[in-house]
C-alpha cells in the first residue's frame, strides 16, 4: 500500500529521501504525540521506562511507531503494517479512548511530517505534491487502523460472550443452577456441551 512514487527534481532529494534522513526525529515526535493522549503522570512513565516488560504499553507503542514510519518510507509495502498497527491499537482498544481518539494518532503523523520538513516544503511545489502522496498513504493507514481497532473490539465482545456461554448452568434451557440440571438428568448433556465448548476453544487456541 505504500508504493513509492519516484519523481521531482534529480538534483534535490525527494520526499521519501527526506523522510528517511529525518527518520529518528519523526519517530520521536510521533511517539510523543501518542504519549500526549495519556494523562500527564501516566505519560511520564510511558516515556521514561525503557524495560519492555515493565512498560509493555510504551514498548508496543515504540515498536509500532518505528515500524510504521519504516513502512511509510520503504519502497515495497509489506504485511508488517498490520502487525505494527495491531501492536498499538490492541492496547488502545481496551484503554479509556473513544474510537476516534484511539485511532487519532495516525493523523498526528501528518502534523509531525509538516513540522519536521517545514523548511524544505516552503516554496517547493514539487515536494508539496509529493507530500500529498504521502498524506494519502497516511489516510489509508487510518482506515486500516480503524479496521484493526474494530477487530479488537469485536474480539472483546466475543470473549465476553464466550465466558458467559462457558458458565455451565446457562447452557441448558430452563435450568437455573447445576443442581437443578442434575435433578433433570441433564448432566450428561451438560458435560457433552462442556466438552464441545472446551475442545472448540482449545482447538482454536492451538490452531488445529
Amino acid at each position: 500500500m505504500f508504493g513509492r512514487k519516484k519523481g521531482g527534481s534529480e538534483t534535490k532529494a525527494n520526499i521519501y529521501e527526506l523522510l528517511e534522513s529525518n527518520y529518528h526525529t519523526i519517530v520521536k515526535k510521533w511517539i510523543d504525540k501518542v504519549y500526549d493522549s495519556y494523562p500527564e503522570d501516566g505519560a511520564k512513565f510511558l516515556r521514561n521506562k525503557k524495560d519492555p516488560f515493565a512498560n509493555p504499553v510504551g514498548f508496543r507503542i515504540t515498536r509500532g511507531i518505528e515500524g510504521l514510519v519504516k513502512e511509510l518510507i520503504t519502497e515495497e509495502p509489506s504485511e508488517g503494517v498490520e502487525e505494527f498497527l495491531d501492536s498499538i491499537l490492541r492496547v488502545r482498544a481496551v484503554q479509556d479512548f473513544v474510537p476516534g481518539d484511539a485511532v487519532a494518532f495516525i493523523f498526528e503523523l501528518k502534523k509531525v511530517i509538516r513540522e519536521v520538513l517545514a523548511k524544505q516544503l516552503r516554496d517547493n511545489i514539487r515536494l508539496m505534491e509529493e507530500l500529498l502522496d504521502v498524506e494519502t498513504k497516511i489516510d489509508r493507514l487510518a482506515l486500516l487502523a480503524f479496521d484493526i481497532y474494530m477487530g479488537c473490539r469485536e474480539k472483546l465482545f466475543q470473549l465476553k460472550v464466550e465466558e458467559i456461554k462457558k458458565r455451565p448452568f446457562l447452557q441448558l434451557e430452563g435450568v437455573s443452577c447445576p443442581s437443578a440440571a442434575l435433578s433433570l438428568r441433564q448432566m450428561k448433556t451438560l458435560r457433552e456441551q462442556l466438552n464441545l465448548v472446551g475442545s472448540r476453544r482449545d482447538s482454536e487456541q492451538q490452531g488445529h
Binding site: 495519556y38 494523562p39 500527564e40 503522570d41 501516566g42 505519560a43 512513565f45 510511558l46 515493565a54 512498560n55 509493555p56 504499553v57 492496547v91 481496551v94 484503554q95 479509556d96
Partner: peptide, 11 residues
C-alpha cells in the same frame, strides 16, 4: 492496572 491504563489513580 497502572501499567496497562496509564491512569495515575491506578498508581
Amino acid at each position: 492496572y497502572f501499567i496497562g491504563s496509564g491512569d495515575p489513580k491506578n498508581m
